[in-house]
Design a protein around this nucleic acid. Structure first.
Lengths: 234, 234
DNA sequence: TCCGTTTTGTTCTCCCGTTCACAAACTCCT
DNA sequence: AGGAGTTTGTGAACGGGAGAACAAAACGGA
């Protein structure tokens, strides 16, 4: 229902309307590819070049970009810097997003140290852990603080995005607390299904699931290799 | 073309034929949910219960399971242990998969220490790093070894799955070496697009991309909240 | 044994995403 | 200025997945 709302009417402030989810998921990939091209000194690129750099089909790339607007020039291609800015603006990474990370185990530390966040518009404003033994530590130049400080930190820094890197058993509690203090986007690394209100976005990253998917295909490959040619048994 | 091969003919050893990719990606989720249920002492569950535990629609769950075979009992539900075994077998995690991890930075260490691998049919047989300064270290009870040992380790342990946790610039080289010594499945944490031969599977996990997707939706939320009601400007 | 209840397995329809193919538009060269 | 060559933006066809809805099958009680 909500989906067809206002497709004909147009308000002033909208270049952005109704970008498909699949496209949104690829925009960061394009952004990265464009950054690489820019670093190489490329000023202009065709959809084909960018598609190769991003690892996708050029038709798909063009259609994706068309949802943002007409930022290319026919017969020429795309201006790398210009397109990069437009995509960054569309995603929202021209501004700085404050982020809190909860759970400073191995993964939490890796995340805290990950330079890819800072360079892409995210700033880790706090590391939280429930274990008092960790509250003395400094990870990635940031003090580890008690989990109970969450409310205050979220308020002080106007945090909207939280990262959960705790064990599975703690994840739901952490999510509840995050939601309670106004966080509306959660990146969950814990292997558990989170129950959150409708308006809260949750994305899940599960390291072992990815490996299991690979294992499935790997198993099929070796199976097939061992098989005689299909139908030879008849 | 290849896809429609032998859909009518049936060889002896196949319960498994043509499982949709979307389903494959969910099987590990079901597996985890079943393990949780089993730990709680649940012996039997309905598709509805399991669907809730896995965070999916029950119709979708039933359809997914139907690709594996008929492992439920109408009017009763699914036997938790039996279904769990069947899914594990289908994915291929009843056997043990030897895995090598290349790149022992923060992320590599987190991966090496991640208990979720071992408990799910994966065994880290080697940690490799190009930096000689790291070759004395022991991470997660495993010696860090020179990257050049890759060939020998892959041969000795019959490794089919490799994990790349290096910086982006090194990723393609590592992938090439992996492919050269017979690895056919790669899990790539480096933020770069890998070029590999057709028969090699690559899955990519990009931490910052997930955050950017959240940022996009977050931006829209706040934007909409600031907007007057659609059409009120006219 | 038979009927009502429960729950699976499957069919059917709809929608989203991908890809093809082409018209529109821009540049360059003559 | 005009035509040839390029490359974008998009309409249309196609394929696959999601969800609703139902028929088939198992159980339990009388």
């Amino acid at each position: 229902m909500e989906k067809t709302r206002a497709v004909t009417a147009r308000t002033s402030s909208e270049s952005t309307r109704d970008i498909p989810e699949a496209t949104v998921a690829r925009l960061p990939v394009y952004l990265r590819a464009l950054t690489t091209l820019a670093d190489q000194g490329t000023g202009t690129c065709s959809s084909e070049e960018l598609a190769v750099a991003a690892g996708v089909n050029s038709a798909k790339l063009r259609k994706d970009l068309s949802y943002l607007g007409s930022y290319g020039t026919r017969g020429v291609g795309y201006d790398v810097d210009y397109l990069r800015y437009q995509i960054a603006r569309e995603i929202g990474v021209t501004q700085d997003w404050p982020v809190v990370i909860v759970g400073i185990g191995n993964l939490g530390q890796a995340l805290a140290n990950y330079s890819g966040f800072r360079s892409r518009g995210f700033r880790v404003v706090a590391l939280l852990d429930a274990d008092p033994a960790r509250h003395d530590e400094v990870v990635a130049g940031i003090d580890v603080r008690p989990f109970d400080d969450l409310e205050q930190i979220v308020r002080d820094h106007d945090v909207a995005i939280g990262v959960i890197a705790t064990p599975a058993v703690a994840a739901q509690d952490v999510a509840d607390r995050m939601v309670a203090c106004g966080i509306t986007s959660i990146l969950n690394f814990a292997p558990s299904v989170l129950a959150v209100p409708e308006q809260v976005d949750v994305r899940k990253v599960d390291l072992s699931i990815e490996l299991q998917i690979l294992a499935y295909h790997e198993q099929r490959k070796t199976q097939h290799a061992a098989d005689p040619v299909e139908g030879a048994s008849a």
